[in-house]
Amino acid sequence: MTEYKLVVVGAGGVGKSALTIQLIQNHFVDEYDPTIEDSYRKQVVIDGETCLLDILDTAGQEEYSAMRDQYMRTGEGFLCVFAINNTKSFEDIHHYREQIKRVKDSEDVPMVLVGNKCDLPSRTVDTKQAQDLARSYGIPFIETSAKTRQGVDDAFYTLVREIRKHKEKMSKDGKKKKKKSKTKCVIM
């Protein structure tokens, strides 16, 4: 069974824990209790493949930012979460993405942009803004509501699919490099 290491990042209060708990335990946590770091595991079937999701729910508070490099190193894919009623959390996505790329030393890291709290009427981040940002990053965008469960499975499952595509691409690139290195030079 394939294991996928997913990391949920975003500013404090955007609903990272609520999304994760909704996926794992099928219930909505409405009281806000700032996370330092929590880890969850769940076995699911995605596109006919049974897999184990190892999900790291991270601290959004700035005082825990020193811990970010460590979990970013171990993560295979990242859910970059903002709240649709919090423009600052949307603007912060850029910083999370840049930090992930720096730590992973790669421009090509599996990510999904997630606009959470889409059940709320007080939207300050337009869907088109988020779609445009995701398009500019070359990553999928999904709106979710941890409260109603809308888009929750889709967000995590899409990230797994992005990781699969990335692994497939990397193995193809690896095979191309191996083929090239088999060419021999004969000096007579």
Rank of each mutant, 00 (worst) to 15 (best):
E63F: 03
E63S: 08
E63H: 08
E63A: 04
E63I: 02
E63T: 05
E63C: 03
E63R: 05
Y64S: 14
Y64L: 08
S65W: 06
S65H: 05
S65F: 05
S65Q: 08
A66T: 10
M67F: 09
M67T: 12
M67Q: 12
M67H: 10
M67N: 14
M67D: 14
R68A: 14
R68K: 13
R68I: 07
R68T: 14
R68V: 11
D69R: 03
D69P: 05
D69M: 02
D69I: 01
D69V: 01
Q70M: 09
Q70R: 05
Q70K: 05
Q70D: 14
Q70A: 07
Y71K: 04
Y71F: 12
Y71N: 13
Y71Q: 14
Y71V: 12
M72P: 07
M72D: 10
M72Y: 09
M72S: 06
R73F: 07
R73G: 13
R73I: 06
R73Y: 09
R73D: 13
R73C: 10
R73L: 07
T74R: 06
T74A: 12
T74V: 07
T74E: 15
T74K: 08
G75V: 14
G75Y: 11
G75C: 14
E76M: 14
E76P: 01
E76Y: 13
G77T: 02
G77Y: 04
L79F: 04
L79K: 00
L79Q: 01
L79C: 03
C80V: 14
C80F: 14
C80M: 12
C80I: 14
C80G: 03
C80Y: 09
C80P: 01
V81K: 00
V81C: 09
V81P: 03
V81G: 02
F82S: 13
F82N: 02
F82G: 14
F82C: 12
F82Q: 02
A83F: 01
A83Y: 01
A83D: 15
I84M: 15
I84Q: 15
I84W: 13
I84A: 15
N86P: 01
N86V: 02
N86M: 03
K88A: 10
K88E: 12
K88D: 13
K88N: 07
K88V: 07
K88L: 06
S89V: 07
S89R: 03
S89C: 05
F90D: 03
F90W: 12
E91P: 03
E91V: 05
I93F: 11
H95G: 06
Y96A: 07
Y96G: 02
R97S: 09
R97L: 15
R97T: 13
R97N: 04
E98R: 04
E98C: 02
E98Q: 05
E98M: 02
Q99W: 14
Q99V: 11
Q99L: 13
Q99I: 13
Q99Y: 11
K101E: 08
K101R: 11
K101G: 06
K101W: 04
K101T: 05
R102F: 05
V103C: 10
V103Y: 13
K104S: 11
K104V: 12
K104D: 03
K104A: 12
K104P: 03
K104G: 06
K104Y: 14
D105Q: 10
D105I: 03
S106D: 13
S106P: 04
S106R: 07
S106F: 10
S106V: 11
S106N: 11
S106W: 12
E107D: 13
E107L: 10
D108Q: 06
D108M: 05
D108S: 07
D108G: 06
V109I: 13
V109P: 04
V109F: 11
V109Q: 02
V109E: 02
V109D: 01
V109A: 04
V109H: 02
P110D: 01
P110N: 03
P110C: 03
M111G: 01
M111K: 01
M111Y: 02
M111I: 11
V112Y: 02
V112W: 01
V112N: 00
V112G: 00
V112K: 00
L113G: 01
L113D: 00
L113A: 04
L113E: 00
L113R: 00
V114N: 00
V114M: 08
V114E: 00
V114P: 00
V114Y: 01
G115Y: 09
G115C: 11
G115M: 12
G115K: 02
G115P: 04
G115I: 13
G115W: 07
N116I: 14
N116Q: 15
N116S: 13
N116F: 00
N116E: 08
K117F: 15
K117Q: 13
K117I: 15
K117D: 11
K117Y: 15
K117H: 15
K117E: 11
K117V: 15
C118M: 10
C118T: 13
C118L: 08
C118F: 08
C118E: 08
C118H: 08
C118P: 06
C118K: 05
D119H: 05
D119A: 04
D119I: 02
L120C: 13
L120K: 08
L120A: 15
L120Q: 07
L120I: 05
P121I: 08
P121F: 09
P121K: 11
P121V: 10
P121C: 07
P121D: 13
P121H: 11
P121L: 10
P121R: 08
P121T: 13
S122H: 10
S122E: 12
S122V: 06
S122N: 13
S122M: 08
S122G: 13
S122Q: 10
R123F: 08
R123T: 12
R123I: 09
T124L: 08
T124K: 09
T124M: 10
T124H: 11
T124W: 07
T124I: 09
T124F: 09
T124A: 12
T124Q: 12
V125F: 09
V125G: 12
V125I: 10
V125P: 10
D126Y: 08
D126G: 08
D126I: 06
D126R: 04
D126L: 06
D126P: 05
D126M: 06
D126A: 07
